[in-house]
Amino acid sequence: MEVASIEEMSFHVVHKIPAGEGPYVRAKHLQLVEKDLEASILWFWKAINERDRVDSALKDMAVVMKQQDQAEEAVEAIKSFRHLCSNHSQDSLDNLLIDLYKKCGKVEEQIVMLKQKLRMIYMGKAFNGKTTKTARSHGKKFQVSIKQETARLLGNLGWAYMQQANYMAAEAVYRKAQMIEPNANNGCNLGVCLINQGRYDEARSIVTTVVDRGFSSATAAAVDRKALQRAKKLLAEIDQSISVSEMTRRLGEEMLKSLDIIEEAPTPSKSKRLPVFEEISPFRDQMAF
């Protein structure tokens, strides 16, 4: 019995499945071991209805539904059943909703939720009154500070504004995020906002800072390599845009000079007679002859 118990514990640890029985455990087994996502959704529903680990069941179900391109259904599920979840889970449910809104293209709803979460931070109501919270990514836990969370939310808000082509609003938000905690991706996106406003020199300055920070020995390990590659590519695009802009400017100046020459050239004198008299004149001349 002892050996079997150890093997069972090892199985649950390896597959990240909770021990015990019930619809939630069955749903996790279907999700992680059998890889039957559709069936796992049914069992997550069952777990919610039977009040079996509702917090986890609702969040896990929403994640699986997103993977199955059922983002809108997941949104409705969270809205309908979040009142059954503890206060401790509400923040993570909000984050899930923001991701789901992004997935199904509901940008306006995403903006509303992001502003709401930023307002909560401003009022001191985020993280249940604490300065840090425990987050999870790819199965690993880590601590997130209020400062980091604010910069993250501002970055997401900036991205949402970019989807609406509201580059002035996105620029303001990204600048604020960069003041709080510089981030390579946010720096690149700020550069894109400036490019779309035709402010190439400012964009070049911002993106150059991202590249320089990426190559500095003090921060190289902290910079996302993909973001650094994106910054270098963006820098090349900016230089090309500056060249094209300069070429267009010069062509425009040459065109204006040409127009000035044309306007200054003397215009041939024209007869003041109406066209009908111009047509009659030759006949008059012939008759006179």
Rank of each mutant, 00 (worst) to 15 (best):
N87Y: 07
H88D: 11
S89Y: 11
S89H: 02
S89D: 12
Q90F: 04
S92V: 04
L93C: 05
D94N: 12
N95T: 04
I98S: 13
I98Y: 00
D99S: 13
D99N: 13
K103N: 07
C104L: 04
C104S: 07
K106G: 02
K106D: 14
V107L: 05
E108F: 03
E108W: 02
E109G: 06
I111V: 13
I111R: 13
V112G: 02
M113W: 14
M113N: 08
L114D: 00
K115T: 01
K115M: 09
K117D: 00
R119E: 15
M120E: 15
I121P: 02
I121T: 01
I121H: 09
I121V: 11
Y122G: 09
M123G: 00
G124F: 06
K125R: 12
A126V: 10
A126L: 06
F127S: 05
F127W: 05
F127I: 06
N128V: 02
N128P: 01
G129A: 11
G129I: 00
T131D: 15
T131E: 15
K133Y: 03
T134S: 13
A135P: 02
S137P: 00
K141M: 12
K141R: 06
Q143E: 10
Q143H: 09
S145G: 02
K147T: 11
K147A: 01
R152I: 07
R152F: 08
R152T: 14
L153F: 06
L154A: 01
L154W: 04
G155A: 06
G155L: 04
L157Y: 05
G158K: 08
G158I: 08
G158T: 07
G158P: 10
W159G: 01
A160H: 12
A160M: 10
